[in-house]
Design a binder for these strands. Structure first.
Lengths: 245, 245
DNA sequence: CCCCACATTGAATCCGCAG
DNA sequence: GCTGCGGATTCAATGTGGG
């Protein structure tokens, strides 16, 4: 049985067709921030928004980042409801968000049928300072469960705070790529040998982390370009791993 | 002119009578968590909820912690609207909350007329681990501004997250007392010599921090017992400070 | 009045070079 | 080849100002 699969296509279409129920759904959807504040509401694409002027790198853009806040909440709750149907009872959902979308994301999580169980802040360590105010240095992971969460045996105790800088330089494939070290902490919410599902796979970091921690991975990615990049990273990750006993 | 004042009484009544406009409103309202989840909805008082079984200390209980979530949001937005009227344009509001009430608190902040500007996580460092899940080790400070925030001269750059453990042992007067070190970072959002307002003064930590950072303080506290304790701490804090030039 | 270009700040991290 | 240091680079922005 392969320890990972990556589908390319529309997540809402593909989710009902998966043949394994997930033990954890871990996603990093486009945040769609900018619906609230005038300075950001310029119809910018993700690249224009997130990449600073002098950092002229050539990472491909990503779609799905132009909804307004109601649209975002509605879209995300549909996705999370579909995820619930694709997840085992007791499974967990972990959803990344920034500060501005945190309340909307918690609404979507609960509207999707998940029980909200907490927030795990992620400190990015490299962030621009804010003049005359507090630096916006953290992103947030919202934790939900499908009913009562699964008991682990032996019990595990996971951190309530994550730290790690975004990948830089050659290792970086996606604009908003998460550090593998951070993801490795998160995938442990699925039991060993369990399945982690990410329907917003991007460059496949969730999968790389899942494999490194001895979990299976099912990914969905809309963009062909990113799906290809993710497959490459996943193949490399399997080679690196010692064969299972 | 005294550098601090502490009123005892009902905040909603007293707020309109204050004779100085605040440069920063910093409050730590009772979180009212537990309105949603059955396990917590046992008619517990604040002491029963926040004080663990074996920590048998004799801190007085505090009121206002039995609203349901709608009531909490409504009450908090009224309080924050009254705070806005008591604050200078450009002033900031900083409101403490736990993870469960964060979305409701952001609603209340914005309903009260403040512009939401960010979240500052406070990492408590001493927190119980969570079995088979992520530790809940953070509380959160929501940052809002009365219109465009005041410009500081010279500019200041404040941290994006806070760390500090809750006071323990003899130094602790209030059940949910915040560390002075954490509060000192926060009061700096008011310009030097500006006025910090806290209508939920409790044991007066906000005031102690404000004085330590060279800001004036106006506090309101409903309970006579806590008001007295706060006055003692504030007097001691002034004695410790070198006299103003 | 709307829209776009650009300067900006501190800290973490990277990179290249020297020892 | 490894380590240590110093300068360069970057940051899931935001505010300002000009066209």
């Amino acid at each position: 049985m392969p320890s990972w699969t990556l589908h390319q296509g529309d997540a809402l279409t593909l989710l009902p067709t998966l043949d394994t129920l997930a033990d954890a759904v871990i996603v990093d959807p486009p945040y769609n921030s900018g619906g609230l504040q005038a300075a950001q509401r310029r119809g910018q694409s993700a690249r224009g928004k997130y990449v600073s002027g002098d950092a002229n790198h050539l990472l491909p853009d990503f779609g799905g980042d132009r909804r307004d806040q109601r649209g975002y909440t509605y879209w995300l709750s549909s996705m999370l409801a579909a995820s619930l149907a694709a997840a085992r009872p007791g499974a967990s959902a972990l959803v990344f968000t920034d500060w501005a979308q945190l309340p909307a994301t918690s609404d979507a999580l609960q509207a999707g049928g998940w029980v909200w169980r907490g927030i795990i802040p992620w400190r990015k360590t490299i962030a621009r300072p804010t003049r005359d105010g507090f630096k916006r240095e953290c992103e947030y992971v919202l934790w939900g469960s499908h009913g009562e969460p699964t008991r682990h045996a032996p019990s595990i105790y996971l951190p309530g705070w994550l730290e790690g800088s975004q990948p830089r330089g050659k290792g970086r494939v996606h604009i908003t790529q998460k550090p593998v070290a951070v993801m490795r902490q998160l995938v442990r919410i699925a039991p060993e040998g369990g399945t982690v599902l990410d329907w917003c796979a991007g460059s496949g970091t969730t999968g790389v982390a899942a494999l490194a921690e001895g979990r299976r991975f099912v990914g969905i990615e809309a963009s062909g370009e990113y799906a290809a990049a993710a497959r490459q990273r996943l193949m490399a990750a399997v080679d690196k791993e010692p064969a299972a006993a």
